[in-house]
Design a protein around this nucleic acid. Sequence first.
DNA 1: GACATGATCTAAGCGCTGATCAGATTGGAG
DNA 2: CTCCAATCTGATCAGCGCTTAGATCATGTC
Lengths: 220, 220
Amino acid sequence: MSGRPRKASPIRSKGKEYHHGSLRRTLIDASVEVIASAGIDALNLRELALRVGVTAGAPYHHFANRGELLAAIAEEGFEKFGAALIAERDAAPDDAASRLEALGRGYLSFAISHPGHFRVMFHGDAKPSGPTESGLRALRLLQDAVEDCQRTGVAPPGEPTPLVLTAWSIVHGLATLWVDRALPFEGVDPERLAPQIANMVPRMFAALAAVRPNPSGPTR
Amino acid sequence: MSGRPRKASPIRSKGKEYHHGSLRRTLIDASVEVIASAGIDALNLRELALRVGVTAGAPYHHFANRGELLAAIAEEGFEKFGAALIAERDAAPDDAASRLEALGRGYLSFAISHPGHFRVMFHGDAKPSGPTESGLRALRLLQDAVEDCQRTGVAPPGEPTPLVLTAWSIVHGLATLWVDRALPFEGVDPERLAPQIANMVPRMFAALAAVRPNPSGPTR
DNA sequence: GACATGATCTAAGCGCTGATCAGATTGGAG
DNA sequence: CTCCAATCTGATCAGCGCTTAGATCATGTC
């Protein structure tokens, strides 16, 4: 009851007020929910706006168009993604193989627990520019982990790019198949399979290193 | 059958006739082109119809709605896909590892040479039913190849599902990253990298088999 | 406290796209 | 030739993205 009742608290209760208070945040959250359960195509700005209690034109004061709403979701997703990868990696034992495995687990865990963000992050259609800054940072984490494995001998030496791409492809492929619901294995729970697959990455690299000390050279 | 001038030739020249003659085929082909270059979202039935010389309502005599057009493209894609995989496999040397590698090469080649079909085939949004009959047939090819590798000792024994899923994830992940243009490696040509990655699948399996004769048991 | 200013939201509407439907046109079967 | 089924046209509706003018609120200034 002092002079200014609500100054540093921009979040209002959901009551009927002219200004929503945190419409941008609310729109992103609601969008992620819709996309997670029904896909990007099902995202309807009109319905979305009405559902959170504003008129159809209001979102355009926070996002220039539908694409920029999606871009904001993707950017937020890549930031959460990078943070999740780092957390998982730093919680792992301090050897190169364990940390690479942790990154793989983190990758899959993120896709499973944030399918809405993940879908938008790697949505191929109509990508204006290439990968974002945050996306590249996440890739560098993987790259460093693979090179660490090479230095400590738990991955074969040589050009790291094919190894990085292989590791990335494994986890990204499984994550994609999972969020696209394209896994036709009955009785298989991808959520339990995820750490198994993630663990397979450093195991295969280690096996390669043990069998072939120098597998470089043209493959075909 | 010499009486009727055109009976068994339903394909007309692009001349202005009331009946198009092969509108369904033409619509699919044009759609695949659009999707390959601009993505699924860019597919516009009106523009598509006018471009091939019919009015906006005509496509609905061949497809109940936009989704069924996409479903037809996916189905056709899976059929081409299966045929391409079989052709590649049967052209390979007659050992299990070579055939598994050939399947991986076929997978990636298909994605690279048929990006339009591939995009629709694995489009996660609004998939009504699960994978198609043809899709499951393609999966069985991979499953059989992996089990052959296990029998001949070039892959570790045990449950084949994790191995199948790993192999599938590697090629599917790279293919997805490729068609989504999400590969931020400069100076790297995925088209030349594809056989290298495909070759890595049986090599890693063989290494695993050589190092650990029995890697079964809970991973974590 | 009165006022100006910028940010936010409403209300109305435009254009484009997916989808429907009655009727015109055509090829083919009997 | 006659009739039928398939195909296409033309008109139209509904839904959605987006724009614009004006109303409402928050905040800083005097």
